[in-house]
Design a protein around this nucleic acid. Structure first.
Lengths: 120, 120
DNA sequence: TGGTAAATTAGGAATGGTTACTGATTATGA
DNA sequence: TCATAATCAGTAACCATTCCTAATTTACCA
């Protein structure tokens, strides 16, 4: 994996923004690299996800992938009203009925209302 | 929600097939209703999901939604090799760090290798 | 039963996030 | 510096899903 200033800027954006979409990362990176293309953002995100450096969130805003620069295992809460995604500690799990399965990753997402939306 | 034979066939297909995609449901329904359109399948699935009768799985085969006629709370295991989705009992969870949040649904997905793929 | 309004459908076009392709640019190691 | 491989910008293509319209079906009441 060779160095590129585009990839460096993408990784920085992933830590600046909170669960951004590819489009949001593109906009952030474009502040310093105005010519960066959306294709470059997608290609780099795919590479980073493949290497386990970045997580891809498929829940959340419908039809759009979100990305998470925090690779440390944790769960997410998705507000069904405002769409906000919030990091949450991963509850202790003792998965049952998985004899013979090799579990490599546990993806846990809570859905409901965030405090702000619940107050209305 | 008025009756329609298309919707009845879609619900039946959801119980015949195991975590099918919209396309697979369409093919199954077409066996008895050859003129059913894919738009009808999607529209009905959306209605059924909105009413909590059907669950939509967003993990799994990339870029495609899968649907689950089993509304009873349970988790899923997705094999990263063959793409198979398997029902799994939902582990007891005590989500932490969610004070003030209204949790309406817990979506839990395990990823890794199923017994068949792990054996190779 | 007959008639009317609302719900549903088939078919196809449109949408939009993502991916693939191309020729040009950049990084790496000798 | 040079050769090679990786990466890029720009754009077209992809494809699951949604939207639109006129025609059909369903529900309900007189």
């Amino acid at each position: 994996m060779n160095y590129s200033k585009q990839r460096e800027a993408i990784v920085m954006a992933l830590h600046t923004l909170y669960h951004p979409t590819a489009e949001e990362i593109h906009a952030e990176v474009a502040k310093t690299l105005p010519k960066v293309s959306l294709g470059t953002v997608y290609r780099n995100l795919t590479q980073l996800v493949d290497r386990g450096i970045v997580r891809q969130l498929v829940e959340g805003e419908k039809g759009k992938a979100h990305f998470d620069g925090n690779a440390y295992p944790h769960a997410h809460f998705v507000c069904s009203a405002c769409g906000r995604i919030v990091d949450v500690p991963l509850a202790e799990q003792a998965p049952q009925g998985l004899q013979g399965f090799v579990v490599e990753q546990t993806v846990c997402t809570y859905k409901g209302l965030c405090p702000e939306c619940a107050g209305k």
